[in-house]
Design a protein around this nucleic acid. Sequence first.
DNA 1: CAAATTTTTGACCGATTGGACAAACGTTAG
DNA 2: CTAACGTTTGTCCAATCGGTCAAAAATTTG
Lengths: 211, 211
Amino acid sequence: MTIGTDAPRRTRIQQEKRELILEAALDVFSTNGFRGSTIDQIAEAAGMSKPNLLYYFRRKEDIHETLMQRLLDTWLAPLRELDDIGDPMTELRSYIRRKLEMARDFPRESRLFANEILQGAPRIMPLLAGELKTLVDEKAAVIRGWMRAGKIAKTDPWHLIFSIWATTQHYADFDVQVRAVLGPNRGGDGRFEDAARFLEQLFLDGLKPKG
Amino acid sequence: MTIGTDAPRRTRIQQEKRELILEAALDVFSTNGFRGSTIDQIAEAAGMSKPNLLYYFRRKEDIHETLMQRLLDTWLAPLRELDDIGDPMTELRSYIRRKLEMARDFPRESRLFANEILQGAPRIMPLLAGELKTLVDEKAAVIRGWMRAGKIAKTDPWHLIFSIWATTQHYADFDVQVRAVLGPNRGGDGRFEDAARFLEQLFLDGLKPKG
DNA sequence: CAAATTTTTGACCGATTGGACAAACGTTAG
DNA sequence: CTAACGTTTGTCCAATCGGTCAAAAATTTG
């Protein structure tokens, strides 16, 4: 373990309470957006008084910033794992599956991110144009290599990545709509397996009838 | 005299000013969400004082509600036009194209809708489970018919519709991210044509290499 | 024209917002 | 124990929020 360059030393209570706050803030921010969320809401969700919360995070923005930093690390992990080794079609399929699992298991994180982007990404724009773009360009090159080798159909790698993001995150960000449209029967827990089956077929064969 | 909620008789000024307000509110709501937007912001964007704005819409919610009602009509028009006549594959392709055009031409409307859904659709839930579900079920039946007839590949019609929504609206809702990742060159006006080409190929043939 | 009506504004209200602060309380090391 | 330090709370503040109201200004109508 590295002795932190600027990682502040924290007591046991500080670590615990900060986690508690971040957990509560994830709930609140992901459903109300940044401006729509209040410190009081977060404090109440975390079971503490507002001044107490402000003792651990001096400003509302600090909570959001900490949340966003943690989020991006785990959120982009599946894409980072997309690797040149192994069968390309299998790699893509498992990337799609992992992204869909994240939409299922971490919907709040997805919505937090969606809220930020929707509102113009005022707080993470540099990250998008920097770290994210670099990563996507890198993986687009890998995908392009697969296309050149004839392993997958030739198309636009960047838009391919967008389409995977869009289709999978849709099940977290638009969950309310998905469940409302599917109704009580098909909108239950099985909807993610249905989605997985559909997406696999879509990205593999498209819609053209077999013949 | 006050402008009644169910008094449709309006003067010329009332019609003009209400349009002005709705136009300004679309800007503000779509980028800040409902709770994140203030009446002052909308009033300033509309070039009038707050009390003056409140003379035309008594409550902040009234503006939002009017906006949402208008939105849904035009927003679902492309799906309504999805018809049983004509070649199924062509029908789907033109539906995708129309949805993508709407994402390009009406991004604020898309974001307004996305904001509402993201935050749990508190104001339009009945519409989702009612009107929207009915429409989607109806069109899903049409698509299912095409599948039974062997005109397109057999898959889940509901999730197919979701995937079309997700991939097309992504270019409006996540526009900032799309442009940041594509960079100045590929992120220009041509990005929608690139997206159209990609989506056509995806939904037609998928990614499996031709052979 | 003048009266009636519609539109616009400045001043104001109570509630809520993000945040400051000192005092009180709890914990721990010497 | 006690002093030092970490934690919690009640109180308070200025700014902003959605919305009201009476009166002024502009427009329409007779």
